[in-house]
Amino acid sequence: MENALVVKNQDGKEVTVNVIDIIEDTVNNKQYVCYNFTEMDGVFISRLVETEEGYSLETVTEEERDAVESSLAQIVPEE
């Protein structure tokens, strides 16, 4: 895992995720992290928020998710 990142979940356990992309919305001035888990299939997305202690990954809204999906689809070539 080239872009492995260790994160703590709400139970305090540390989980390692593979960061695929960090997307910056220049219009709304927000950042999103696109990642996947080693033990789980699929790609997930969370909003990246900078706190005093560090960073936190928050739940995205439906609109935010759609916007990120379209952004990723535009750069992904269709077969």
Partner: peptide, 10 residues
Amino acid sequence: VTLNAQPVPI
């Protein structure tokens, strides 16, 4: 880095 919420699949 803290994971505060449920990851949303895309």
